[in-house]
Design a protein around this nucleic acid. Sequence first.
DNA 1: TATTGTTATACTCTATAACTATA
DNA 2: TATAGTTATAGAGTATAACAATA
Lengths: 154, 154
Amino acid sequence: MIRTPTVLDRLLEISALFQQDMARAFAGTGLTPARTHLLWVLADHGPSTQQALATAMRVSPRNVTGLVDALDRTGHVRRGPHPTDRRAKIVSLTESGTLAMSEMARDHERLSAELMAAVDSSDADGLLRGVDAIATHLRAMVEAEASTVEQEER
Amino acid sequence: MIRTPTVLDRLLEISALFQQDMARAFAGTGLTPARTHLLWVLADHGPSTQQALATAMRVSPRNVTGLVDALDRTGHVRRGPHPTDRRAKIVSLTESGTLAMSEMARDHERLSAELMAAVDSSDADGLLRGVDAIATHLRAMVEAEASTVEQEER
DNA sequence: TATTGTTATACTCTATAACTATA
DNA sequence: TATAGTTATAGAGTATAACAATA
């Protein structure tokens, strides 16, 4: 029984294709999706403690230790002392990490233009409003689930 | 410098939200994204050899061994003999695995309806055509990259 | 006492390479 | 000789729990 693909089907397919494309793009750069996520958060928030990174990434502090270890080895980030709290460490992008992020931002722009060129211009507005609405709905949904879990944990 | 989110930004956000939602939905069921992917392929293709599964999932045969081991332990699939090739094994869904897939299909329908309800009906057509066009473009892009890699490997 | 980061441990997903049993 | 699946090994991402240093 074949069903015409729905918007949801397409969005799920697009998610899978993004993952495949990124995995391919990272191959050979020493970066991975998780490490790039950390760099991205760092570029967005500026130099941060590992606690702050763990919270922003919704990941365990232990996990951040491992990702920062790896990114430090590849020279993308460095750990510096916290000015007032001697327990904490400030993670910041190196020149090389900053450069990698700039390149990624440029690729992002290019892909964005390329995708919109593939879309019929009469559909562009409806598309943007549609994905906006869907993102908003999903954001609220995931948020609600997260608080339910927290409730249960009490 | 704040930029108005583009369609690409939203699609990437939606991908991340899907992943979070699925991870949450799987918690406690014994299923994971990778194992569910295998069940999905099995439901779609019918009973298959592990080779066929590995090819369909674009994953190593070794990986399929591990996933089938896990799904066999949880009772979602079983390994049976191949009728003519004694090297091969036929993996098929158990009653429990079939049931899990039905529930997932039902959840999928429900989510699809829920998302479309969040979209302004005047945007629905443009949205569907837009995501179709983008999926088509990405599919071709990933396909092209895959063949480039194969070329390089020769 | 509470918090920051790390060590210890474990599980999942993934890959390649070598091996066994069959084709 | 080639193919199907497994064992062996390894690396990445993730988590919890226990611990040290510091707040």
